[in-house]
């Protein structure tokens, strides 16, 4: 027998994919499981899933494997939690979306921004009197890289979502229910 706290003490990035009933207060219940153990949530995305009445959470944390596994068990222990799975980065496809607000003159005065848009596979989402809104999807490092490249042109606002993930297997969420 060995104690359950043994093992590697190295922190890693983990993604938790959680399905719960879509009920008021549950987000509080789920996030409390992390805060109680003083584990900071790097990103969290919660929305109604494709299944009626079910919410999907994508939660990204950095912690040790055995702590992450225990958190999954604690989430599953919640009466209204339907499913919780733990993934390391190479077990999922993940994507985030970023929006960049750029002054219009930076865009029209020279073609450097336009080039960046093309090179980065970004797209123009809106064009207003004094700014344009760019959108890019990708990994965090990619959306961040575009931000760094756009900085010299004066980014008025930069906002990015947490990641959403799908596992690399072919499980169907309905089967869980």
């Amino acid at each position: 027998m060995s104690t359950a706290t043994n093992g590697q003490s190295t922190e890693k990035q983990f993604t938790l994919s959680v399905l719960t009933e879509n009920k008021s207060g549950l987000l509080n219940r789920i996030t409390g499981i992390f805060s109680r153990r003083k584990i900071n949530i790097d990103a969290i995305n919660v929305s109604v899933s494709e299944i009626e009445g079910v919410s999907r959470y994508t939660i990204m944390i950095r912690t040790e494997r055995n702590k992450a596994e225990k958190i999954v068990q604690q989430i599953l222990k919640q009466v209204e939690a339907l499913d919780a799975r733990l993934y390391e980065p190479d077990e999922v496809h993940y994507q985030e979306i970023a929006l960049y607000k750029i002054p219009l003159n930076a865009f029209v005065n020279e073609n450097k921004v336009e080039k960046l848009v093309r090179q980065n596979g970004a797209r123009i989402l809106a064009m207003e009197e004094d700014y344009i809104l760019l959108e890019k999807t990708g990994h965090k490092s990619e959306t961040r890289a575009l931000f760094e490249q756009l900085k010299p042109f004066g980014v008025l606002e930069f906002i990015h979502s947490g990641s959403v993930v799908v596992s690399k297997g072919n499980k169907v969420p309905e089967e869980i229910l």
Binding site: M1, S2, T3, A4, T5, N6, E69, K70, Q73, Q74, L76, K77
Partner: peptide, 13 residues
């Protein structure tokens, strides 16, 4: 009966 207790403190064979 509570699965979250399994391997929480002591690993079960």
């Amino acid at each position: 009966i509570d699965p979250s207790e399994i391997n929480k403190n002591v690993k079960a064979d």
